[in-house]
Design a binder for these strands. Structure first.
Lengths: 196, 196
DNA sequence: ATATTATGTGAATATATATTCACAAGAGGT
DNA sequence: ACCTCTTGTGAATATATATTCACATAATAT
């Protein structure tokens, strides 16, 4: 029998195991059985700590939300120059994806969007906040003269996020078969050419 | 009993029904039962025309591949100015997504990427061709002076595609609850500001 | 030390899904 | 009219998955 740990600890383990499964096999494969395997415990024990799949999904979404959004907000709130902030946010986001490939898979899974409406709404709000945060930084960059004056701040933010997201997508789609870091560097370089 | 039609016709009906299901309920919900409902025939009849789910998935991918890529290649091959071509490709792509919301859901489903490796490879190649097509148009735009000289053609193409893809994603994620057309127009306008 | 509570698990249950099968019924050729 | 091939279907089968349950065992309180 497995050693006993508190529910608080097991919940974290289960969330990490779930994210690991999503990163390796996708949301479709996020079954209780797969989570149990990955976490090294019995299926029944999963139910000891979570009421069911929905609650696990919500916990995973909560983990991702804090990881991505909190980070960006902290950077945006700093005192550096806007372009510098954007660069840091961009590469933190890429680093987070490399560390947890399950994050983009989870956030952009139609399974989540259509199967867990409340979760999708929560995620939508989070993404909306993220977009606004970046929009704010870009607007500052424009008014401080670091970026072109005729840019639309929100659309430029969407373009930047699309860049990140499309890269993550091609990467997970190709089964992580190319180096995402150099790809990201070229994209960032080009974004600077584009935006100023 | 349903009226009889040839396998050729039924196959098309089934592919369209499948795409409709994906658009409405996501790839996860693409069950034989759901396809049968949407196509208005029995489940057993699906098997009369396709050997199984894999063959249906392949047929859907084939339909999408022709629809997206062929179109772009035709436009790219024309004699108009590069920026003009880009605009047409951009808005055709958006129009296609509006008409078939199942297309982005299907192409970007981790279910496909991880569950149907051969299909994922086929799609990857198609996407690669699409990227190259657009890269070529952008390279022409740069050398003809329509676009900034210091742009990286491939990265700019990825940025443009990311814009489209992220828009499609937010749209399907929000359950098609905002107007995608005006959103696309603002993004295109801003892309022109960015790229020249 | 004992009782109580929290944690862990194999086995059972219920449901969904993909696939097969035996048979029905129309279409086209003879 | 008869035969044959194609198309259509309800019922059966096999498997996967989520969830529950009765029981075991460790931790904690009394």
């Amino acid at each position: 029998m497995l050693e006993k740990k508190s529910t608080r600890v097991r919940k974290e383990e289960i969330v990490q195991a779930a994210l690991e499964v999503v990163g390796r096999k996708g949301v479709r494969a996020l079954t209780i059985s797969a989570i149990a395997d990955s976490a090294g415990m019995s299926e029944a024990n999963i139910y000891r700590h979570f009421s069911g799949k929905d609650e696990i999904f919500a916990a995973v979404a909560e983990f991702i939300g804090s990881a991505v959004v909190t980070n960006a907000a902290a950077i945006a709130g700093g005192s550096r120059k806007p372009l510098d902030k954007l660069e840091t946010i961009f590469f933190s986001h890429i680093a987070l994806i490399i560390e947890h490939p399950g994050i983009p898979r989870f956030v952009f899974s139609d399974d989540i969007h259509l199967g867990q409406r409340d979760l999708a709404d929560t995620l939508s709000v989070r993404i909306g906040n993220y977009i606004e945060t970046i929009t704010g930084v870009i607007a500052a960059g424009i008014s401080e003269g670091e970026l072109k004056p005729d840019l639309l701040a929100r659309e430029t933010a969407l373009t930047l996020l699309g860049m990140i997201q499309f890269t993550a997508l091609r990467w997970t789609m190709s089964n992580t078969s190319f180096e995402i870091q150099p790809e990201a560097e070229k994209l960032w370089l080009n974004f600077k050419h584009l935006a100023r």
